[in-house]
Design a protein around this nucleic acid. Sequence first.
DNA 1: TGCAATATAGTCGTGTGCGATTCAATTGCA
DNA 2: TGCAATTGAATCGCACACGACTATATTGCA
Lengths: 157, 157
Amino acid sequence: MPCFSRTFTVTTDDPLALDHFLCFAVYSVSHAFTRVYKPLLDRLGLTYTQYLAMAVLWERDDQTVGSIGERLHLESSTLTPLLKRLEQSGYVARARDPADERQVRLSLTASGRSLKAKAAHIPACILKATGLSLRELSRVKADLEKLRHALECYEGK
Amino acid sequence: MPCFSRTFTVTTDDPLALDHFLCFAVYSVSHAFTRVYKPLLDRLGLTYTQYLAMAVLWERDDQTVGSIGERLHLESSTLTPLLKRLEQSGYVARARDPADERQVRLSLTASGRSLKAKAAHIPACILKATGLSLRELSRVKADLEKLRHALECYEGK
DNA sequence: TGCAATATAGTCGTGTGCGATTCAATTGCA
DNA sequence: TGCAATTGAATCGCACACGACTATATTGCA
């Protein structure tokens, strides 16, 4: 591309430069979050994704694999092994729904319910780590939710 | 399928509610990006992370595993197998640096260099998928970079 | 100069993630 | 009612992602 066709030329003009990728910003923040969570979750015996699954069940107990997956945007191929590990850890119980034997219902054990209290301090720790005010956090989160919606609408086109 | 309008606002005080998690917003957008990229990258024979690694090399050829890892915030245990797969695909060459045999230098092959032209249309496709203007995209990206910096500073404390 | 400390990739084990497929249960319709 | 289509979870293969560890090369300092 000849230079005369451009109003100004900078080294960062290249659209394929990593620093232009919104996706990379999201990707790297996601990993950074996981690393901040790790020491906090290690003490609960949870991985990051397991923590998300527990949060879904803390909100509403007794859900199917499918409904948890819909909430977390994850496939059964991801969730089934993960939920089996949570069962191994003693936090959830898995049982076929007698009314519809295709479904598997996940319910919290006593240990899983009491884990919520042990996790109660985490959101404040994370908020501190983000260095954001609650207002800023809300705004960034809203931007991301709007973005997720747009990306999901675009899929399959 | 596309466009379930699940952008309802939940009114709960529970800090452990999934909808309060900034991390989950980031996490789910990251996966949504991957899913939008997939059909575009399939035609190039790249995975999403491989695409990021190629972008790093398109910016500057002939880098070590370490410098690529620093750029992408990834460990050698992640990069080594990934770069070997890029070598298998014929896009990069791997060679020990004669001046320092500890380092492995990655360089683009002719095929790897010409792949950049085949990827040139992708950023515009992604921009369209985000539904954002360039200005909005810049703002969200800046917010995320600031956030990543805060999280990385917090690590190890 | 010798050797301990450090740096750099690589290996291994565990845990996501997903697409393609499978299997069993349920549904719907001729 | 019978059976084809659909649904829900599980399985399998592949590719990240990282922590802990290893092997080799280099550096730095007594």
